[in-house]
Structure formats: structure tokens, C-alpha cells
Amino acid sequence: MHAYLDFERPIAELEGKIVELRQLAGNDPTMQIDAEVGRLQQKADQLVKETYARLSPWQRVQVARHPGRPHFCDYVKHLFDEFTPLAGDRAFGEDAAIVTGLARFRGQAVAVVGQEKGNDTKSRLKHNFGMAMPEGYRKVQRLFRLADRFGLPVISLVDTSGAYSGVAAEDRGQAEAIARTIEACLNLRVPLIATIIGEGGSGGAVAIATANKVFMLENSVYSVISPEGCASILWRRPEKAQDAAAALRLTAQDLAGLGVIDAIIPEPIGGAHRAPDEAMSTVGDQISRALGELSHMSPDDVRRQRREKYLAIGRDLK
């Protein structure tokens, strides 16, 4: 069953009517509903299109967090063959909030990394809602070293509200773990391609998104702080999250305008959660093109391109 967001209520009502009609017709075969269903469906489709054509930044935050949106593990199933997860940082433990592994992407051997939020209570707890611990980031550093040694491009799928903040994370050096992972991204001599598939939450996202190419799905967000966090600090009122979401300029469209990302990947009408397979295939196509573009660069040039790109960010802004 489809989960509706608050602003999708009119759509939910229309689609609810269609379901109701079909149920009624199921009980009474003499009822003629095709014309009515067709009319309602057209109206609903139109409404979805109109609603998604003018999403506010806060609504995009809701879509980016939609529980039905494809998550890392869905992408792994849809885009990769022979996925072989690799576990552990070899120092403290295994952190399922970040998943790393080897795989084949459209025939090519690659390394894969990304946060997984989970999609039910059990898996959400297992993956700690996609909020990684220091050992998760140190596992990424290990994957990067492996990818570098064997010349495997790295595909990163970013989806986290942020790195975990708690006593255990602090005790094991969350700040240092993130810092070193950013540095590891910057020193890779193989292509690193990052796509924000849902939420790009602050340092926890940057740690795996400091890439040669950074893409954002049309309804994903990437921000220095959550709108709720920003509202409670700057406005001192968490309910000002809508205003904060607009002020932070965190949508894909904003980031493309600021020159922080390389491209926006369009989503199916009504968001990635309405047609997950289509959304994931489009992401795959974009990654594939980027891999092609980077494939003839030397290892030194790959590293240099990434560093020059980041140094240039913001320098042309007025």
C-alpha cells in the first residue's frame, strides 16, 4: 500500500475513490465503472503532475525521506550483479548503517558504498536508520584502499540524515573518522561517483560524497544541517523547519545553481517512490555515462580533477 505524505492528501483522496469504486464493482458485476475510473485516474495523474511540478523545499525534504523511496539495498539489487558485501573496519566492529562491497555494474567490476536506512522496524534498527558509527566510516576507508589497489571505480549512493551522535560514537572518534574518510575520498586514484539518492545529511554524507562527479536525484536534499536542527538553533523554534528548508537552499535545483553538484537526475512523475525501478535505472544510466567519461583519465588526473573541482566550488559566486 502506498504511503501518502501530508501534502499529497488530495491525491490520496482521488486514488482512494478509485480503489473504493473498484471494490464496489468487484461485489456487483453489473456496475459500469470504467468511464468513471478513467476520469478519476486522469484527474489523479494530473494532480500528481501539478503537485510535483511545484514542490516547496520542505515538501522535497518529505519526499527525500519518503519510506517508499528506493534505498541503498534496492539499488544494489536493481543495478548490480554479483554484489559481495564486505564487513568490518578490522579495528572495532561492523556497522550496518554503511554498506560496502564489490560488485559488477553493467559488466564492469566496481566497489560500492552507501548508507542504508532500512524499510521496517527490524531493518531500521539493524542499519541504525542509516546513521553510521566511526567503524562504518573506517570500513569505507578500507574499501577505498582496496579499490585503489585493484583499480576499481567506486560508486557511492548517499542516503543519511547524518552520522550518529552519541557517547559511543564520540568515544571512538566520530569526528576523526569522518575527517579521514573525506581525506580518503580526495586521495583516491580511481573514479569516485556519488549520487544523493535521498538525504545528504551534513558531514556524514560528505564523507562518502567528495567525488569526481556528484549527482542528486531530483527530489533529494543535501544540507549542512537538517531544517529542524537549523530552525531550533537559528529561529529557536523547531516548527520553523519549513522556513529553514527554504533558507538553507538544500534542493538539487539549488545545489546545481550554486555549482556544488554536477547534474540533477530526473525522477518519475510523482517521485522515485511511485516508480522505483524506473528511478533506479535512470540513476544507473547517469552513473554509467560518468564512468565512461572518467575511464580514460590517468589515476593522477582522476585525483587532480577531484581536488581542482572542490577548490573551485564557490569561487565564482557573487
Partner: peptide, 9 residues
């Protein structure tokens, strides 16, 4: 916003 985040890398 995100421009401050970009100062980390």
C-alpha cells in the same frame, strides 16, 4: 548552507 559544508573537503 551547503557552501559551508563544502569547506570541509
Amino acid at each position: 548552507g551547503v557552501l559551508s559544508l563544502m569547506q570541509m573537503p
